[in-house]
Amino acid sequence: MPEYDIGEIEKLIDGELAWPRVQEIMKGAKDVDRFEKWVKILQGRVSWPEPILLPLTPSLFIVQKENNERVVKCKCGQEFGDYRVNWKLSASIYVRESEEDFKEIYRGSEQPDPAWTQLREYSCPGCGTQLEVEAVPRGTPPDFDFLPDLDTFYKEWLGRPLPDEQEFTDKTLETVGKWS
């Protein structure tokens, strides 16, 4: 199994590695310690202290709080709550659903039909980074893009269990149920 220097992985992440080398990495067997290096690199790029358990997106991370709670946190420090609740429920949202709204992005023959689709832009209330965009018809619940089975991942796949095992369950509807 290949093993890559962490500096080379960092260059790969930043798009600074020469394409022929990237192709070599793509074609070869995967380096089994990538996750550890990946998390180490990303941890070094955020200003907050909580350990990253899982990078969810380029901006969002599941982190472990001091009390072993696992929450979703933005690179800027904004927190989005329990990782088992779709983080979009704690995001800011802007929705385009008229011809005029769409025009900033899509014009003329490039524009979708507003009666068929709405464009939902989820952003971080802290830093304004656009985190996800959904193009869906009215009525679509937001996609819970990924609910990780964190304890299985750490215990069974990485061989280092996390403290305070938590139930692998989607708590989104439970949260919405409390809304009025």
Binding site: T57, P58, S59, I105, Y106, S109, E110, Q111, P112, D113, W116, T117, L119, E121, Y122, S123, T129, Q130, L131, E132, V133, E134, A135, V136, P137, D143
Partner: peptide
Amino acid sequence: SKVLANHGMYGAYPGWPDR
């Protein structure tokens, strides 16, 4: 042709419809 792909991955805007 009427709708966009739901592929705004990590905050990108999807490509436009086919006309």
